[in-house]
């Protein structure tokens, strides 16, 4: 579904990604872990071109996203993204947050979009918050709305950029539960996270990144149970 070839990204003189090759298959849940500054968020943001790669290519469902001629907006519809800091639209109600993209991008009618929106809000357990503004929500509620917002476009893959890192500990569970549910339904997911327990539980494959390269990738049981690279061992011994 997503194929990444020789992906590099530099900010000025700083080389954040130094050549990444990965293939993500349909229905797969890939978890990316690694220390801060290892480039995992940058890698994720390159997948929908929120960061423009300096070199290499990203191929999504057969189309090269890094090709200048590609209409990136068309493909972003199919790539949902959830951010660490939620980024709900502050000027819109919860329901409008979820329905704005289907209406603006897919040109759905208000009624159609509202139907989809309410269904998704119900699914994340927030239908009673449909008409409040994001500022009235807790962090966990915001993140669940953000997931509903991304799902409203009917994406083929969901990207999660440290979705629980900005949450109070007691709110992490409710967000992970929604993600777990998604994984169970067979959604293709790429998750950058520090939640090792969750990675082990829902991941089909775990990727360990450090200093802009993929050091190790394996099934969760293997990577956590029997890490090969010394850097992976060192990292896991600190976080587990």
């Amino acid at each position: 579904m997503i194929k990444v070839n020789g992906l590099k990204k530099s900010f000025g003189k700083l080389d954040v990604l130094k050549g990444i090759d990965i293939e993500i298959k349909k229905g797969e849940v890939v978890v990316v872990i690694g220390p801060s500054g290892s480039g995992k968020s940058t890698f994720l943001r390159c997948l929908n071109l929120l960061e423009e790669p300096s070199a290499g290519e990203v191929i999504f469902e057969g189309a090269s996203l890094t090709d200048k001629k590609t209409n990136i907006n068309k493909h972003r519809e199919k790539i949902g993204m959830v951010f660490q800091l939620f980024y709900l639209f502050n000027n819109l109600t919860v329901l409008d947050n979820v329905t704005i993209a289907p209406r603006d991008v897919k040109k759905l009618s208000k009624e159609q979009a509202t139907e989809i929106g309410m269904k998704l809000l119900k699914r994340v357990g927030l239908e009673e918050k449909a008409n409040v503004f994001p500022s009235k929500l807790s962090g966990g509620q915001k993140q669940r709305v953000a997931i509903a917002r991304a799902l409203a476009m009917g994406p083929d893959v969901m990207l999660f950029d440290e979705p629980t890192s900005a949450l109070d500990p007691e709110m992490v569970g409710e967000v992970l539960e929604v993600m777990r549910e998604l994984a169970r339904e067979g959604m293709t997911m790429v998750i950058v996270t520090h939640e090792m327990g969750f990675a082990r539980e829902v991941g089909d494959r775990v990727i360990f990144m450090d200093e802009g390269i993929v050091l190790e990738e394996n099934k969760p049981s293997e990577l956590f149970g029997n890490p090969q690279h010394p850097r992976t061992k060192d990292f896991l011994s600190k976080v587990l």
């Binding site: 929908n48 929120l50 907006n73 068309k74 493909h75 972003r76 519809e77 790539i79 949902g80 993204m81 951010f83 800091l85 980024y87 709900l88 639209f89 502050n90 000027n91 819109l92 704005i100 993209a101 603006d104 991008v105 953000a146 917002r149 991304a150 476009m153």
Partner: peptide, 22 residues
């Protein structure tokens, strides 16, 4: 916040529409 624009773009909205509506 730059994240507002990023979130809108990540949903497939054009730069112009994200500006105008968000």
């Amino acid at each position: 916040d730059k994240g507002q624009m990023e979130a809108a773009r990540s949903l497939g909205m054009t730069h112009g529409n994200a500006m105008r509506r968000i």
